[in-house]
Each structure stands twice: as C-alpha cells, then as structure tokens.
C-alpha cells in the first residue's frame, strides 16, 4: 500500500523524488551488463560523446562510398531518383526552391557519423566498420567542400574541428511569440472582402493516386 502512496506523491513532484531513494520502486527489470550497453549504446552527439576510437580519410571514403552508397545517392552525391541529395545546395536556403543537403543544411558533422553508422547502407544497417564510417563521413565532408584535403585524417580526436556551414541556421520554436495564432477571437460574419472565389484547383496538377476513382 505504501508503494502506491509513494508513487502518487512522486508523480506529483517527481523531481524532488528523483534519484537513488526512489530506485527499486517496483523491483522490476535487471541490471544491464557493460557488454550489453556497449552493444546498443551507439549514439553520437555534437560534442563528440559516443564517438569510438577510429579514423579515415576522404580518399578512403570514396572507395567505400562508391561500393556502398553511390547506387542510391549517386557518384557525386546528387541523388538517384528520389533518394536524398547529399552534396551541394550552398546558399540556397533563402531561395524559392532550397536544396537541403549535408553541406547546405545539416548543423553538425556528428549527425552524419551517427546516421551512416546506425541506418546505412540502406538494407544493411550497422554493417560498416567504425573506420569505414569515419572515411565515408570524411568523403561526404570533402564532397561538400567542408574538408579541403582528401588525405586529411578524420578521427575521434579531430572530429571536433569540423564546423558545418549551417551550424547557426537553427532557431528555437517561435510559434507562440511570432506567429500570433493564439488568443484571437475568430470572425463569424462577413469575414472577407466580398464573396469568395476559387483561385487554385488540385485538378490542375492531377497528381492524386487513383484519380479516376
């Protein structure tokens, strides 16, 4: 019974209850072993936390990329069919048709390493060696003119030297302060300047599946 009381109290003010004193509340689960944590804890952060020891160069990465990546992303990262474009797009984010790539949009190089390692190659995830991931990351940075030397060694020690072009391109959610869609009283009558007419039709594009149905 007392456990239920504890749970209720700590639900209301969890922060005060957090910590060792509240561990073993239900006595469920078992400790994770170091080997188990190592097997699954693969995430990388912008500060380099999580990066394994290893290294690679863009020149080495080109070989792996050609074998493992180019079939979808293209020899030059241009993207085949609708697979993602990886290269280019610099200075297009203000354009009418921005091209968002690793080089033009991604704020952190750690995201490349993390994503390539956890989810690529598509259909054979987590099959690349750590050094291969460093090499592919270096090659992607090289193709995007972020690394200038294709023999430069990218490693867990040099990783923090990389500064992505769009690192300052992100701002926090401003929907409340800026967008002004809260607390306004909606208009109910005569809300437009005269009668409303159609200005655009989906039919013109005709991109709906099974449109004949």
């Amino acid at each position: 019974m007392s456990k239920w009381v504890d749970t209720a109290l700590c639900t209301a003010a969890f922060v005060m209850c957090a910590g060792p004193s509240f561990a073993d509340a239900f006595g469920l689960g078992r400790p994770a072993t170091p080997a188990e944590i190592a097997a699954w804890d693969i995430d990388i952060r912008p500060d380099g936390a999580g990066l394994p020891i290893g290294q690679g160069t863009a020149a080495e990465g080109e070989e792996v990329y050609s074998e493992q990546c180019a079939v979808c992303h293209g020899d030059f990262g241009e993207g085949i069919d609708r697979w993602p474009i990886l290269v280019g797009g610099g200075d297009t984010l203000e354009n009418d048709r921005p091209v968002k790539t690793i080089g033009s949009y991604w704020p952190y190089a750690s995201t490349i390493w993390d994503y390539v390692h956890r989810a690529m190659p598509f259909g054979e995830a987590q099959s690349l060696e750590d050094d291969e991931v460093y090499a592919i990351t270096a090659y992607l940075l090289y193709m995007n003119d972020i690394l200038e030397d294709d023999e430069a060694v990218l490693s867990n020690e040099t990783f923090s030297d990389i500064v992505m072009p769009n690192v300052d391109g992100f701002i926090e959610d401003g929907r409340v302060e800026i967008d002004g869609m809260k607390g306004v009283e909606p208009c109910m009558n005569d809300c437009t300047d005269g009668p409303v007419s159609v200005t655009m039709r989906a039919r013109v594009l005709d991109v709906t599946p099974d449109a004949e149905n």
Binding site: E94, K100, W106, P107, Y108, G169, F170, I171, D173, G174
Partner: peptide
Amino acid sequence: TSKYTDLLEGGKARRFT
C-alpha cells in the same frame, strides 16, 4: 536536424517544434 526542422523565409529553420 535534417528532418523535422521547419525552414522559414530568410533561410533560418526552427528546430524542436
């Protein structure tokens, strides 16, 4: 970062929306 960020006019993108 690459996805689920909202690019605004002017080239900045909102994150954590």
